[in-house]
Deep mutational scan, measured.
Amino acid sequence: NQESVVAAVLIPINTALTVGMMTTRVVSPTGAPAEDIPRLISMQVNQVVPMGTTLMPDMVKGYAP
């Protein structure tokens, strides 16, 4: 099972992602793949992402898996 990126903390809208904001988990439906964490760092979210929420590609500005 592939791990997806999950918010480790509450991420406010327009916040640039840091490694400490993200964790990985096997979830369904799958979100952004765990191996993309290095690409996701410094990208901004376009909505509030509550802690424990799977990071879906459409939540991150300019990100395409």
Score class of each variant (00 low, 15 high):
residue 1 N to F: 13
residue 1 N to M: 14
residue 1 N to V: 14
residue 1 N to K: 14
residue 2 Q to D: 10
residue 2 Q to L: 12
residue 3 E to R: 14
residue 3 E to M: 14
residue 3 E to N: 07
residue 3 E to V: 11
residue 3 E to T: 08
residue 3 E to K: 15
residue 3 E to C: 12
residue 3 E to G: 11
residue 4 S to R: 05
residue 4 S to W: 08
residue 5 V to C: 07
residue 5 V to R: 00
residue 6 V to F: 04
residue 6 V to Y: 03
residue 6 V to T: 02
residue 6 V to R: 00
residue 7 A to N: 01
residue 7 A to C: 06
residue 7 A to S: 05
residue 7 A to Q: 01
residue 7 A to R: 00
residue 7 A to D: 01
residue 7 A to H: 03
residue 8 A to L: 09
residue 8 A to H: 08
residue 8 A to C: 09
residue 8 A to M: 08
residue 9 V to Q: 11
residue 9 V to H: 03
residue 9 V to R: 02
residue 9 V to D: 02
residue 10 L to R: 12
residue 10 L to S: 11
residue 10 L to Y: 13
residue 10 L to V: 07
residue 10 L to Q: 07
residue 10 L to D: 15
residue 11 I to A: 01
residue 11 I to G: 00
residue 11 I to L: 00
residue 12 P to D: 10
residue 12 P to I: 09
residue 12 P to T: 09
residue 12 P to C: 09
residue 13 I to D: 10
residue 13 I to A: 14
residue 13 I to Q: 13
residue 13 I to C: 13
residue 13 I to M: 13
residue 14 N to L: 09
residue 14 N to K: 05
residue 14 N to V: 06
residue 14 N to W: 15
residue 15 T to H: 04
residue 15 T to R: 01
residue 15 T to G: 06
residue 16 A to C: 12
residue 16 A to K: 13
residue 16 A to R: 15
residue 16 A to H: 13
residue 17 L to P: 01
residue 17 L to C: 07
residue 17 L to H: 02
residue 17 L to N: 06
residue 17 L to D: 03
residue 17 L to M: 03
residue 18 T to K: 11
residue 18 T to F: 07
residue 18 T to L: 09
residue 18 T to I: 08
residue 18 T to W: 09
residue 19 V to D: 08
residue 20 G to N: 13
residue 21 M to H: 08
residue 21 M to I: 06
residue 21 M to V: 04
residue 21 M to Y: 04
residue 22 M to E: 07
residue 22 M to P: 07
residue 22 M to V: 07
residue 22 M to I: 09
residue 22 M to G: 06
residue 23 T to W: 10
residue 23 T to D: 10
residue 23 T to L: 12
residue 23 T to R: 06
residue 24 T to P: 08
residue 24 T to F: 09
residue 24 T to V: 11
residue 24 T to L: 09
residue 25 R to P: 08
residue 25 R to D: 09
residue 25 R to W: 09
residue 26 V to R: 14
residue 26 V to Y: 13
residue 26 V to Q: 11
residue 26 V to W: 13
residue 27 V to H: 01
residue 27 V to C: 08
residue 27 V to K: 00
residue 28 S to Y: 15
residue 28 S to V: 14
residue 28 S to K: 12
residue 29 P to G: 01
residue 29 P to R: 05
residue 29 P to C: 07
residue 29 P to F: 06
residue 30 T to N: 14
residue 30 T to Y: 15
residue 30 T to P: 15
residue 31 G to Y: 01
residue 31 G to K: 04
residue 31 G to T: 00
residue 32 A to R: 01
residue 32 A to C: 15
residue 32 A to P: 02
residue 32 A to M: 15
residue 32 A to N: 06
residue 33 P to Q: 03
residue 33 P to I: 04
residue 33 P to M: 05
residue 33 P to G: 03
residue 34 A to I: 06
residue 34 A to S: 07
residue 34 A to G: 09
residue 34 A to L: 05
residue 34 A to W: 06
residue 35 E to S: 15
residue 35 E to D: 11
residue 35 E to W: 15
residue 36 D to S: 03
residue 36 D to H: 05
residue 36 D to C: 09
residue 36 D to P: 00
residue 36 D to L: 04
residue 37 I to R: 00
residue 37 I to E: 04
residue 37 I to A: 03
residue 38 P to Q: 10
residue 38 P to T: 09
residue 38 P to H: 12
residue 39 R to L: 12
residue 39 R to Q: 10
residue 39 R to H: 10
residue 39 R to Y: 11
residue 40 L to Y: 04
residue 40 L to W: 06
residue 41 I to L: 10
residue 41 I to A: 03
residue 41 I to W: 00
residue 42 S to K: 07
residue 42 S to H: 12
residue 42 S to A: 11
residue 42 S to W: 09
residue 42 S to Y: 08
residue 43 M to W: 06
residue 43 M to T: 02
residue 43 M to G: 00
residue 44 Q to R: 14
residue 44 Q to K: 14
residue 44 Q to G: 02
residue 45 V to T: 10
residue 45 V to A: 01
residue 46 N to V: 10
residue 46 N to K: 09
residue 46 N to D: 04
residue 47 Q to K: 03
residue 47 Q to L: 08
residue 47 Q to P: 02
residue 47 Q to S: 05
residue 48 V to K: 12
residue 48 V to Y: 10
residue 48 V to C: 15
residue 50 P to D: 08
residue 50 P to K: 10
residue 50 P to Y: 10
residue 50 P to C: 10
residue 50 P to Q: 10
residue 51 M to K: 14
residue 51 M to P: 10
residue 51 M to T: 06
residue 51 M to L: 11
residue 52 G to H: 08
residue 52 G to Y: 06
residue 53 T to E: 11
residue 53 T to V: 11
residue 53 T to A: 15
residue 53 T to H: 13
residue 53 T to Q: 11
residue 53 T to W: 12
residue 53 T to C: 13
residue 54 T to N: 00
residue 54 T to C: 07
residue 55 L to A: 02
residue 55 L to T: 02
residue 55 L to F: 04
residue 55 L to I: 14
residue 55 L to K: 01
residue 56 M to F: 08
residue 56 M to C: 08
residue 56 M to T: 08
residue 56 M to A: 02
residue 56 M to R: 07
residue 57 P to H: 06
residue 57 P to W: 15
residue 58 D to R: 12
residue 58 D to F: 15
residue 58 D to V: 07
residue 58 D to I: 08
residue 59 M to A: 06
residue 59 M to F: 06
residue 59 M to P: 02
residue 60 V to W: 07
residue 60 V to N: 01
residue 60 V to L: 06
residue 60 V to P: 05
residue 60 V to C: 05
residue 60 V to H: 03
residue 60 V to S: 00
residue 60 V to G: 04
residue 61 K to F: 12
residue 61 K to Q: 11
residue 61 K to N: 14
residue 61 K to W: 12
residue 62 G to H: 07
residue 62 G to Y: 06
residue 63 Y to T: 03
residue 63 Y to M: 05
residue 63 Y to A: 03
residue 63 Y to E: 04
residue 64 A to C: 15
residue 64 A to E: 15
residue 64 A to H: 14
residue 64 A to N: 14
residue 64 A to I: 15
residue 64 A to S: 15
residue 64 A to V: 15
residue 65 P to A: 12
residue 65 P to F: 09
residue 65 P to I: 13
residue 65 P to N: 10
